[in-house]
Amino acid sequence: MKKWTELVPGAVVLEAGSSAKFKTGSWRTFRPEWLQENCIQCLMCWLYCPDMAVKVADGKMTGFDYDYCKGCGVCAKECPGKQGKKAIIMKPEGK
């Protein structure tokens, strides 16, 4: 922890996006798993995820960022999947 002499007057936070240093993945009790074969790349998971924990590269979903995913299950619930088959399923953490 910082000493008072090391603080920025006015408590201004100078480093934008520094929350990335705070990993929220440990909050998870369920983890989303991606079944690529059912994925239609609609990006709904990416759009709805409250935690910016769906990884995309070049406009495509590539998996989850488990450092931040809190395991809420919104992505799995909203995933349309292919012909009724979900591309995301939730599994209990640690199994």
């Binding site: 922890m1 910082k2 000493k3 008072w4 603080l7 006015g10 408590a11 201004v12 936070v13 934008a16």
Partner: peptide
């Protein structure tokens, strides 16, 4: 540290907990 420096985005008015508040007041 102007807020309107768009090149260097800053956050004003954080929540500070028991482990730092006292230090800010000391400052």
């Amino acid at each position: 540290n102007p807020l309107l420096d768009m090149e260097h985005p800053k956050s004003f008015g954080p929540l500070i907990l028991t482990d730092l508040y006292h230090e800010y007041k000391r400052l």
